[in-house]
Computed example of a mutant assay.
Amino acid sequence: MNWVLVVIGGMVGAPLRYLTDRAVQSRHDSVFPWGTFAVNVVGCLILGLLTGAATAGVAGPHLQLLLGTGLCGALTTYSTFSYETLRLAETGAGFYALANIVASVTAGLGAAWAGVWIAQGTWA
């Protein structure tokens, strides 16, 4: 049964990642990977909210599998972040590569902490 929840979450997360990435990137005339950045930060926020909700006892293991493992596992993408950063560096856009690393890690951690903080304020 648990694997079904992961599959359902992934079935939503994967196309959501693709469509969001394309929509965000099409609005920016830049080599910076804004679409990947956006889905990763949103995924970190969702995981933070889910973690805070689980800590408060309002999100059980089934919701964690559905949203955390399934949805966020398919929505977020460390491999694409790594690939795009490497491609930026290889094509001479070293500043953008470094900016992608710093901004992604900083914003991702900030979003996760913000999610936990919001959840704790809501359900604690």
Results as ranks from 00 to 15, higher is better:
Q25G: 10
N40L: 04
T76M: 06
A56C: 05
T76V: 07
G35S: 10
I46V: 15
T106I: 00
G70E: 04
L109F: 12
E90K: 06
V42F: 13
W117Y: 13
D21Q: 14
F81D: 01
G70N: 04
V6I: 15
P61L: 14
L65K: 06
G92C: 05
Y18W: 15
A112H: 03
V31A: 08
W34C: 11
A107I: 00
P15C: 02
Y78W: 09
T80H: 00
G73K: 04
L63A: 14
G121K: 01
G108R: 01
L5P: 12
L19P: 03
S104F: 06
Q120I: 09
T85Q: 04
T85E: 04
E84N: 02
L71F: 05
T80A: 04
S82E: 07
F37L: 15
Q64T: 15
V6T: 12
N40A: 02
L45A: 10
V6H: 09
N40C: 01
V12K: 02
F37P: 06
L98E: 12
P61W: 14
V4Q: 14
L63C: 11
A114L: 15
T106L: 02
G121H: 09
T51A: 11
A53W: 01
S30W: 12
T51E: 03
I118S: 12
L86A: 13
Y96A: 15
Q120R: 06
L86G: 07
G13S: 11
D21Y: 11
F81K: 07
L75I: 07
A114C: 15
N100D: 07
T122L: 14
G94H: 12
P33K: 02
F95P: 00
G52D: 08
A54D: 06
A53L: 08
P61C: 11
W3Y: 15
G121S: 08
L5G: 14
T77Q: 12
H28E: 07
L71E: 09
T77F: 12
A89F: 08
A56I: 01
G57E: 09
R17P: 00
T77M: 11
T106D: 03
Y96E: 13
V7D: 12
A99N: 02
G48V: 02
W117K: 10
G57T: 03
N2E: 13
S30R: 03
C44G: 07
V102W: 00
I8W: 11
Q25M: 13
T20I: 15
V116D: 02
L88V: 04
V7R: 12
V24K: 08
M11S: 13
W3G: 07
W3M: 12
L45Y: 03
C72R: 05
V58K: 03
I118T: 15
M1T: 12
I118H: 13
P61E: 15
W113K: 06
T36D: 03
A23M: 13
M1A: 12
Q64N: 14
G60K: 09
G110N: 05
N100M: 01
W117I: 02
A23Q: 07
F32T: 02
A119T: 09
T85Y: 06
G68E: 10
A54P: 05
L65V: 09
A59M: 05
R87T: 15
V105W: 08
R87D: 15
L88N: 00
L75V: 04
A59Q: 05
V4P: 10
I118G: 11
